[in-house]
Simulated scan of single mutants.
Amino acid sequence: MYHIVSLLNEHRKRMSIPQGIGLGIIGDELGKKVAGEEVSATRTATSTVIGTGLGAAASGALVVAGSAAGLVSAAAAAPIVVPLAAIAGITAFIKSRW
Rank of each mutant, 00 (worst) to 15 (best):
M1T: 11
Y2K: 12
H3R: 11
V5Y: 09
V5P: 01
S6P: 04
S6D: 07
L7W: 04
L7I: 11
L8Y: 06
L8G: 08
E10Y: 11
H11R: 10
R12C: 06
K13V: 07
S16Y: 03
S16D: 05
I17G: 02
P18L: 02
Q19D: 02
Q19K: 08
G20E: 02
G22Q: 00
G22L: 04
G24E: 02
G27Y: 01
G27N: 04
G31D: 01
G31H: 01
K33G: 11
V34P: 00
V34T: 05
A35L: 03
A35M: 00
G36H: 07
G36S: 10
G36K: 10
G36A: 09
G36V: 13
E37W: 04
E38R: 12
E38F: 00
E38Y: 01
V39G: 02
V39Y: 06
V39P: 03
V39H: 06
S40A: 04
S40Q: 03
S40H: 05
S40Y: 10
A41W: 06
T42G: 15
R43N: 00
T44S: 14
T44Q: 06
T44C: 13
A45S: 10
A45H: 02
T46R: 05
T46F: 13
T48I: 05
T48R: 13
T48K: 07
V49C: 08
G53N: 02
G53S: 10
G53D: 03
L54V: 06
L54G: 04
A56W: 03
S59Y: 07
G60N: 04
G60D: 03
A61I: 05
L62H: 07
V64N: 00
A65G: 04
G66C: 04
G66A: 09
G66R: 05
A68E: 09
A68D: 12
A69D: 10
G70Q: 12
G70K: 08
G70V: 12
L71G: 06
L71H: 12
L71I: 11
V72W: 14
V72F: 12
V72M: 08
V72Q: 13
A74W: 09
A75M: 06
A76V: 05
A77T: 13
A77Q: 10
A78T: 14
P79L: 12
I80A: 15
I80D: 15
V81M: 15
V81K: 14
V82M: 14
P83C: 04
P83D: 04
L84R: 15
A85I: 09
A85G: 14
A85L: 11
A85P: 09
A86T: 15
A86L: 14
A86C: 11
A86M: 15
I87D: 03
I87W: 06
A88G: 01
A88L: 05
A88T: 00
A88W: 02
G89V: 13
G89I: 05
T91N: 07
T91Y: 14
T91V: 14
T91S: 15
T91M: 12
F93N: 10
F93Y: 14
I94A: 15
I94E: 05
K95T: 15
K95G: 01
K95F: 15
S96T: 09
S96Y: 15
S96A: 15
S96M: 15
R97Q: 14
R97N: 02
R97E: 00
R97S: 02
W98P: 03
